[in-house]
């Protein structure tokens, strides 16, 4: 039995993709990219399983590996923080070189042994898959390997319990609910009403532009807290409504005086070169960065831009 031409085409299309994706796992800087590369490898493997007369394993590969395991990886990546990248500091001297040499040596040995061995003529699974592949696999699992299957079931239950125990967190402080928060606000004399929405009466409607109060002054707390902590708000100076300047200009215009910006500046006693500076790029405005506590649920990584 030799593989058909179609299978050869499938293999030669998928094999380079898989090796490239596996290399992506090795070299990708961001963990999410590495996870996507592994997902590529796993889906390609499912194709190869189906081509290799193992349709049951192909389906299980997609359902269990890409569907469950890799999604679990992505969930944990989101929990741990997508930014968590590798440190380049070597704590063990020469570990990187030894690692490269060991991995390369392992690859050369494996490929050499596997590639140079003479195998018997391939039998193919035509007979074994006579009553369809899932039935054949089931006969072996529930025939010769029943005990192993039971043990594996116990293992899965144990693993689920283990995950629950390992990620369990003891509650050390009392729960702070809405009622307690409200009471604390009243006690502290803080703002009781909801915060104004950002940007509503300002020149833009974006989240990072502070709202303006009736005097035209920006209300800094109208910008969402996360944006303020990251320093991504669009700056309060840039969106000052300049109502006083406008009023002066309007009064002067009523009297028939057309004043230039410079003359108004002189009359107002302000010497702004550019009364409306452009909005600062994200990350450059000075905002509170460390002095805001985000409470118990914080991972401490929110302040890192």
């Amino acid at each position: 039995m030799t593989p058909s031409t179609a299978e050869a085409v499938l293999f030669w299309v998928l094999a380079p993709i898989m090796v490239l994706a596996a290399g992506g796992l090795l070299f990708a800087r961001k963990a999410v990219h590495a996870a996507l590369c592994v997902i590529t490898v796993m889906i390609s493997l499912a194709f190869l399983y189906v081509a290799q007369e193992a349709p049951f394993l192909g389906v299980v590969q997609v359902v269990v590996y890409t569907g469950a395991v890799m999604m679990l990886f992505l969930f944990v990546l989101m929990l741990v923080g997508v930014d968590a990248s590798d440190s380049l500091v070597e704590t063990l001297r020469g570990q990187r070189w030894i690692g490269w040499v060991a991995a390369l040596g392992l690859g050369v040995v494996l490929v050499g042994v596997v590639g140079r061995t003479v195998y018997p003529d391939a039998v193919g699974l035509g007979d074994a898959n006579g009553a369809t592949n899932p039935v054949g696999v089931a006969r072996i699992i529930f025939g010769q390997h029943v005990f192993a299957l039971e043990v594996v079931g116990a293992l899965l239950v144990t693993a689920a319990l283990g995950a629950l125990v390992l990620t369990h967190r003891q509650r050390l402080k009392p729960v702070v609910r809405q009622r307690e928060r409200a009471a604390a606000r009243v006690k502290a004399g803080a703002r009781l009403t909801p915060l104004p929405a950002p940007g509503v009466y300002a020149r833009h409607n974006a989240m990072d532009v502070p709202a303006l109060d009736p005097d035209g002054n920006p209300i800094e707390e109208s910008v969402p807290r996360v944006l303020r902590i990251r320093g991504q708000e669009a700056g309060t100076d840039a969106f000052h409504a300049d109502t006083y300047r406008r009023a002066v200009t309007a009064v002067l215009a009523q009297r028939g005086v057309t004043a230039t910006d410079a003359e108004v500046d002189a009359a107002l006693g302000t010497t702004e070169d550019d009364p409306r500076p452009p909005a600062a790029p994200p990350g450059t405005t000075a905002g509170p960065t460390t002095d805001i506590t985000l409470g118990e649920g914080s991972t401490g990584t929110e302040t890192q831009p």
Partner: peptide, 26 residues
């Protein structure tokens, strides 16, 4: 192609996985 190609591909993937375990810190 023969079935050996699959085995070589499997060996390459295994070594790349081993390299990842040895070299990455995350």
């Amino acid at each position: 192609m023969t079935l050996t190609h699959y085995l070589v591909l499997s060996a390459i993937l295994f070594s790349l996985g081993a390299a990842t375990v040895l070299l990455r810190r995350n």
